[in-house]
């Protein structure tokens, strides 16, 4: 199917979807209390974004996401590199990590609440915990993806260890690392949301949970849309970086 045809089909589906969202509740086919019409949601979106309490909540959530990310990524990367480079440690810990990774992190949330309370620190701690494992595993994979031949060639030209790290490991690992950043942010964001929705007095997740409990559906949908847009924006940003750094991958 040609590119134009694909684009037009996608556009058509989007219009159908949005159209249904508007028409079905208004016509009463779907209960408008459960699914507010699109126009109402959009109007509410405009309202809440202007509210200072919502903006404060967004700031809190953003801070939690950023701080957790800034801790989890370097920590996870360092551990990932260590496990890939040190055969002994790698052999011991990597199978264990694999098992731990398979456990859904949300079950640990009550423990984090007991240990850290329900403030900023707890959400950061929990989100870091949710994210660090995927970073470790992706970084290990990235290190191993550097071909031995590349290193041998560099050695035959008298490269020092530092030169090999900078000139071979870094560019070679970049596409995988960027992909890892993109995916870890998804885990990170999810972690923050779960913590905020479950037990928090601040943040967008808390507001969304509150709206849900109070059956304020237009606000709930509006809040979800704001978060979705933020997540997609970050995703696209990293993806465009990935594309730039991956041009050499055929």
């Amino acid at each position: 199917m040609s590119r134009t045809a694909t684009l037009l089909t996608r556009l058509a589906m989007l219009i159908v979807f949005l159209g249904a969202w508007e028409v079905l509740p208004r016509a009463g086919i779907v209960n408008p209390m459960l699914l507010p019409p699109l126009s109402q949601v959009v109007a509410t979106l405009g309202d809440i974004v202007a509210r200072s309490d919502f903006r404060e909540a967004m700031a809190v959530t953003a801070a939690e996401v950023v701080v957790a990310f800034v801790i989890a990524v370097p920590l996870g990367a360092a551990l990932g590199v260590l496990l890939a480079e040190n055969a002994y440690l790698g052999a011991i810990f990597r199978p264990m990590l694999f098992y731990v990774f398979s456990i859904p992190k949300s079950i640990f949330l009550p423990m984090f609440i007991l240990a850290f309370g329900i403030g900023f620190g707890q959400k950061v701690a929990y989100a870091t915990f949710s994210t660090v494992f995927i970073v470790i595993m992706s970084t290990s994979a990235a290190v191993e993806s550097v071909k031995a031949e590349y290193i041998l060639v560099a050695q035959s030209y008298g490269a020092t260890r530092a030169q090999i790290l900078r000139r071979i490991y870094v560019p070679s690992m970049m596409p995988i690392l960027l992909e890892a950043v993109r995916i870890s942010m998804i885990f990170n964001f999810t972690g923050v949301m779960i913590a905020e929705m479950y037990a928090s007095r601040t943040g967008v997740g808390h507001m969304i949970a509150n709206w849900g409990e109070n059956f304020m559906l237009p606000q709930l949908f509006a809040g979800v849309i704001v978060l979705a847009l933020a997540a997609m924006a970050f995703n696209e940003l990293v993806r465009s970086l990935e594309v730039r750094c991956s041009r050499w991958r055929s």
């Binding site: 590349y150 060639v153 030209y157 008298g158 071979i168």
Partner: peptide
């Protein structure tokens, strides 16, 4: 290794992509 004295060409061209 002393690339100014001895140059090496391996089986895999191993050019950096």
């Amino acid at each position: 290794p002393d690339p100014q004295r001895v140059g090496v060409v391996f089986q895999e061209a191993s050019l950096y992509p």
